[in-house]
Amino acid sequence: MINDLSFTVYQGDFLGIVGENGSGKTTLMKLLLGLKQPQSGQIIFSGGLKQSEIGYLPQQTLTQRDFPATVREVVLSGRLSKLGIKPFYSKSDKNKAEEYMKLTGVDMLSGRSYRELSGGQQQRVLLARALCATEKLLLLDEPISGLDPYSAQDMYDTVRRLNKDMGVTVIMISHDLNGALRCSNRVLHMEGGQYYFGTTEEYRASDIFHTMSTCDCHCCCEHHTKGGGESA
């Protein structure tokens, strides 16, 4: 359940949504995507943005682990919403797919099978697919879960580049507080029915951040040790 939540995302923003499990992050995401309807209140898309124009990077599912599909097929499926009632993709759809594969650095892999890629490569393929759906707004759901520290860093860099250079608005749900804060310019913190929404600087100075970050400290340390271990 989410009650009394109100926030605004402007074009070119990078919003990090952080908080505990069960605080409603997933519900919020479903509302934004239109997979669920709010009981009251509304989500307003202005400036010509439509709900179906959100590029969504979902968490990976079990089905995908042994799914036979080439990278090109997966990325191209992002053009689905542009297809309408036409049954097949056009030349321009295919060109777009190529373009975004280049942008996320997976164009070399386009003929490879998705199931044979590393976790980081798979995430970048899904990012290219999300871009195929829209260049306006990306919604990333735990984009680095299951990735090793290097791939995670790489994922953050790619997303940040899209946000800075191409002006793509990004909404990112993440467990990784530090990573989210480094990328975002606004933060929505959700925890047990309490919400905090503000710029990243305001959030860093707030009480809620200090309680959160002391809890999180242990996890961070563990994270770094792991990274160090692998590089050695």
Binding site: L33, G34, L35, Q51, S52, I54, Y56, P58, T61, T63, Q64, F67, A69, V74, S77, G78, L80, S81, L126, R129, A130, A133, L139
Partner: peptide
């Protein structure tokens, strides 16, 4: 699209 990723397909309408 629906087979590969129902969530994504749903989100794109």
């Amino acid at each position: 699209a629906v087979t590969f990723d129902e969530g994504f397909a749903g989100a794109t309408g």
